[in-house]
């Protein structure tokens, strides 16, 4: 099988989710090539996870329409049986456009993947994690997106031949005219290995700082429940759950939240879950690896101190 992996760069390096995707393709025994759009500083890095040919589209602008056309054309012309994306913001914005150009669907948000002859088989959560489904690709090319943090990254050796490709000169129909970065020293929810989420139990906006402080000790991203977002105590972008983001970090700390079914849907595939809640009957304890029954205002300060001692 030949697989084309679509990778994105961040701060001059390949995104973690992209490194995962290249690793997965290589481990499936495929001849793995990559497509990278951006400055090109990170392109060579794809070979360290197994990419042979790296198609580099040098650009300083993000244009999903053009990237989709370039990727679909490359997939056809190169005779790839599969195109892999990370199921991150970029993967969500580009993969379905590519699938439309290739007359297929995206097998999206895969948490397990295998190859069956020339077909790709995946398992993925549906209903925000309340159930799962096994799917198989049909047709000549499978477009797949892989859930972040579900696959390990392993180094490998690829030829790493860089082939520069150029744009098609078509102006996008929907164009980004302004971009305002959210300035934060914290890792984004999508990329985070660790997440600390605050729920209604924090009682008021000012107390969200407790969550932020705990997150900063851990180098974690901060999250919030719908109740906290609706109350205006945290930004919408931080909402974890069925109408927010789905995350699966190695460590998820749920502080002062009961675990409504919509919230559990967004985080219950995290590896280790810690819950701190006053109510021993709270549903969050049903999914927690470790639970502390207690008042978060009494538990979080000593917890922060202990973590500081350990992590320095």
């Amino acid at each position: 099988m030949r697989i084309l992996v679509i990778a994105q760069e961040k701060d001059g390096a390949l995104r973690k989710s992209s490194r995962e995707a290249v690793t997965v393709a290589k481990k499936l025994g495929a001849q793995t090539d990559a497509f990278v759009a951006g400055t090109g500083n990170a392109a060579q890095e794809a070979s360290a996870y197994g990419a042979d040919t790296i198609y580099l589209f040098k650009t300083s602008e993000y244009d999903a329409e053009m990237q989709s056309r370039l990727i679909a054309a490359k997939a056809k012309e190169g005779g790839y049986q599969a195109v892999f994306f990370a199921h991150d913001w970029y993967g969500r914005d580009i993969s379905a456009r590519v699938a439309a150009l290739l007359d297929t669907v995206v097998l999206s948000d895969a948490t397990q993947i295998s190859v069956d002859g020339d077909r790709v088989a995946i398992t993925r959560p549906v209903y925000s994690g309340k159930a799962k489904v096994q799917l198989k690709s049909k047709g000549p090319v499978a477009v797949v997106s892989l859930r972040s943090n579900s696959f390990t990254i392993e180094e490998s050796t690829g030829k790493g031949e860089i082939v520069e490709i150029s744009g098609d000169g078509i102006e996008p129909m929907a164009k980004i005219v302004e971009f305002t970065p959210v300035v934060t020293k914290r890792v984004s929810l999508a990329d985070a290995d660790r997440v600390v989420t605050g729920g209604r139990g924090i009682k008021e906006a000012a107390n969200y700082k407790l969550i932020e402080d705990l997150a900063d000790i851990l180098g974690a991203a901060t999250g919030a429940t719908r109740a906290v977002v609706d109350a205006g105590w945290a930004d919408h972008a931080l909402q974890v759950g069925q109408t927010g983001q789905t995350v699966a970090p190695n460590l998820y700390m749920a502080i002062g939240l009961s675990g409504a079914i919509q919230h559990l849907a967004g985080m219950s595939s995290s590896k280790i879950i810690v819950a701190v809640n006053k109510d021993p009957e709270a549903p969050i304890f049903g999914v927690a690896t470790y639970g502390i029954v207690g008042d978060l205002f009494e538990v979080v300060p000593p917890l922060s101190d202990e973590l500081k001692k350990l992590l320095g």
């Binding site: 088989a121 549906v126 799962k132 489904v133 096994q134 198989k136 690709s137």
Partner: peptide
């Protein structure tokens, strides 16, 4: 363009 093999818990 997709084959659904089975849903599961």
């Amino acid at each position: 363009m997709v084959e659904i093999v089975a849903y599961g818990d």
